[in-house]
Design a binder for these strands. Structure first.
Lengths: 192, 192
DNA sequence: CGATTCTTTGAAAACAGTCAATCTGTGTGG
DNA sequence: CCACACAGATTGACTGTTTTCAAAGAATCG
């Protein structure tokens, strides 16, 4: 639903009616079924992606076939590979839907035009980048300073909604631990 | 030396002579001796910080007294706590000099004015933020997918200059492993 | 040189990963 | 509605990696 995106814009900035329409006119809606890919390793990221419903993830697969989840995105989050989008280089990530989902796509070119022509859009995008960076820094900090159990507890605090929504094995992957370890960690926590 | 900063600006954007002077007029130079703090946990970050010479690090200290290094910054890098700078909240990080250093400070207010009034400056800052985010993403990826040895080898590839410049124990901290483990990892690598 | 800081080494313990088997819950087709 | 298949979670036994603590060895600097 395009309305989810419109409402999101309105909460994030002061758009005039015309500006809103300019942004909305630039997007394409795409539906994804569970397990459907939005991007495959080796592809070039061509669009900025906003999730209006459902849940996606970005991840890599290593030589042993293990998946490593870099990010989740549910409604009102963005997901993508900025590096590929910027440079035009093939992405090393896969992105697919964990649930049936709907996403809002904005092509690279149109996105850049929006940034130039619609100041509130540009401000919003910069704010998101800022925030994404902060989130990434904090995540790095948990990796260099916390044990498996601490990382899981931090995750629960930060993303309580995600914990109940995505399979545990994927949370484990996101935390950089195995599904078995996460299972044991949870057992320990419940005991107390 | 203010010239290091000027040259940096010129390589990063097309500044007119006047714009250059506007930026330079907004900065304050500060010298730091080895081990001197630029920011202590609990302080609010008041300035944007560019390193013109030397080397700084940002880190936390946990309850057991262990240091966890989040970032290094050598000449021509920026360092700071964007979150504290933005929100005005006390920082959870410490920043100090690993070598005698010189930094360029720009107060939050002046920095914001520069972003508004000097387009090439604004573009430069956005580009840096983009790049910082990409670096952070890549670092997260190494944490969720690599062993101690692989992380060290990745570090050597990405920052060969740093490896010879900062103590090994600090590199270990940056990688989220102990100094002892890094020492053993290095021993293994040399054997081959 | 002596003091300090950093690195290396060894042995034991804690932690996390692997592999295989079992258990649980969900949804589908007969 | 039941039986079955399937995906995900848990468990056990074992292996491997990393940490911890303590001590000894380099390296650096005044």
């Amino acid at each position: 639903m395009i309305n989810v995106f419109k409402e999101y814009l309105q909460t994030k900035g002061n758009y005039t009616a015309i500006q809103l329409e300019t942004v909305v006119a630039a997007v394409v809606i795409k539906k994804l079924r569970k397990r459907q890919y939005l991007l495959q390793e080796g592809d070039v990221m061509k669009n900025h992606v906003f999730v209006s419903s459902g849940c996606l993830r970005s991840y890599t697969v290593d030589d042993k076939g293990m998946e490593h989840i870099l990010n989740f995105a549910i409604e009102n989050w963005w997901i993508g590979d900025r590096e590929s989008l910027q440079t035009g280089q093939p992405s090393i990530y896969n992105i697919d839907a964990i649930e049936d989902s709907e996403v809002v796509l904005i092509s690279r070119d149109k996105f850049d035009v929006l940034c130039q022509d619609v100041p509130p859009f540009n401000n919003m995008i910069n704010a998101i980048l800022q925030k994404s960076f902060n989130v990434a820094q904090n995540r790095i900090h948990t990796f260099i300073s916390q044990s498996a159990e601490e990382k899981y507890l931090s995750f629960l605090e930060k993303f309580p909604h995600l914990a109940t929504r995505v399979p545990q094995s994927m949370i484990a992957s996101y935390l950089g631990i195995t599904a078995e370890t996460l299972s044991r960690v949870r057992k320990q926590i419940v005991k107390r």
